[in-house]
């Protein structure tokens, strides 16, 4: 990680750390902690998607499906097989990774529109399975009675504990991805995005890297799904449908997909919008999302983080020598 990223990392970690202390004393905003738990869960999905889409340049409209594979794996294993939630989580992640690998080998040979359609189709198929396999998933009415997570034998109920747990995962995920990006693997991913033929000619096994980063994004989404399941204690297929895959795209686009910070920013912003600020639009919500997506794609293709340096003191952003995550 570059110095700049370390600074942003520490400052963000500090802000996230004190956030509950600031909002909790005020009744009108104390539920923001709960909103931020969801924001953290979605941020985890978005970090993976940003690696795939922003850095390696491969589109996926299937992240909700991997999110769902994690959620249902955790749900089914704990409800039907009474497995420990902490053991179920890696099983779900492995399953999501395996499915991504199987799908990725043929799918990632496709480009652009075809890849988008293939992942879209896959996502819809997974959602149909969630609806149809009633015996396991509970079908459209959902899966109930999912246990919570416990640490050291004690179940965590308090949302504050959830908050720090989820954001702990987010920061671990960020750290992992930053390390990957600032290494030969990260350079290879960006090279694939920019000039695939040249990357291949320089000895980068482009097909393998694309599949690997796809698997990585699926694992991130799956872990987020497991956290979501145990936090909600109830899941149904409508949280993992096409609309949600597009929501994840939207989050990453709004924040700025060529930056991990953008992914986090987008997830937080959109979660607040969805939970807090867009209620006034009621059923017209989707038009607002569509319009937002359109505006971002047309006018701010690099997302909100690309506007931030203009707002903050220039010293922080311009001093660093490496350009590794501006590209």
């Amino acid at each position: 990680m570059s110095k700049k990223d370390w600074w942003i990392f520490l400052v963000t970690a500090f802000l996230i750390g004190v956030f509950p202390l600031v909002v909790q004393p005020f009744r009108s905003v104390s539920h923001y902690v709960d909103v931020m738990v969801f924001a953290g869960i979605f941020a985890l999905v978005c970090i993976g998607l940003s690696m795939l889409m922003g850095y390696a340049g491969q589109i996926s409209i299937a992240q909700a499906a991997f999110f769902g594979i994690g959620a249902y794996s955790s749900g089914i294993l704990t409800v039907h097989f009474h497995m420990n939630p902490w053991a179920a989580m890696p099983v779900g992640a492995a399953l999501a990774g395996f499915v991504a690998w199987l799908l990725g080998i043929p799918a990632l040979r496709l480009k652009g529109h075809y890849l988008a359609m293939a992942t879209l189709g896959f996502g819809v198929i997974v959602n149909i399975i969630m609806n149809e396999e009633v015996k396991w998933t509970g079908g459209p009415s959902g899966l109930v009675g999912i246990p919570g997570l416990s640490i050291g034998g004690r179940e965590i109920f308090h949302e504050l504990a959830w908050y720090y747990l989820v954001w702990g995962f987010v920061f671990m995920g960020l750290l992992f991805c930053f390390h990957v990006l600032h290494s030969r693997v990260g350079r290879a991913l960006r090279a694939i995005h920019e000039e695939e033929a040249a990357a291949e000619a320089m000895g980068v096994p482009t097909a393998r890297y694309k599949v690997q980063v796809f698997v990585l994004s699926a694992i991130f989404a799956s872990i987020a799904g497991s956290l979501y399941t145990h936090y909600m204690a109830f899941i149904n297929p409508s949280s993992f449908n096409l609309e949600w895959s597009i929501q994840f795209l939207l989050m990453v686009m709004v924040g700025g997909m060529q930056s991990l910070w953008g992914a986090v920013l987008g997830a937080v912003l959109m979660t607040f919008m969805r939970n807090e600020w867009l209620h006034v639009f009621a059923d017209q919500e989707i038009i607002v999302y569509g319009a937002l997506l359109l505006i971002v794609a047309l006018f701010v293709p690099k997302g909100l983080v690309s506007l931030l340096p203009r707002l903050l003191p220039s010293r922080i952003f311009k001093s660093s020598g490496t350009r590794e995550d501006e590209s």
């Binding site: 889409m53 409209i61 652009g112 989707i286 999302y289 569509g290 359109l294 794609a297 293709p301």
Partner: peptide, 26 residues
């Protein structure tokens, strides 16, 4: 969006589909 990347074009037509769908629902 004439000069947009393929990725942007995909996003743009998806956005249009959401706007049409939302309008139809309204």
């Amino acid at each position: 969006a004439r000069n947009a990347s393929i990725l942007s074009l995909i996003i743009i037509t998806i956005a249009m589909s959401m706007i049409f769908k939302g309008s139809a629902m309204s």
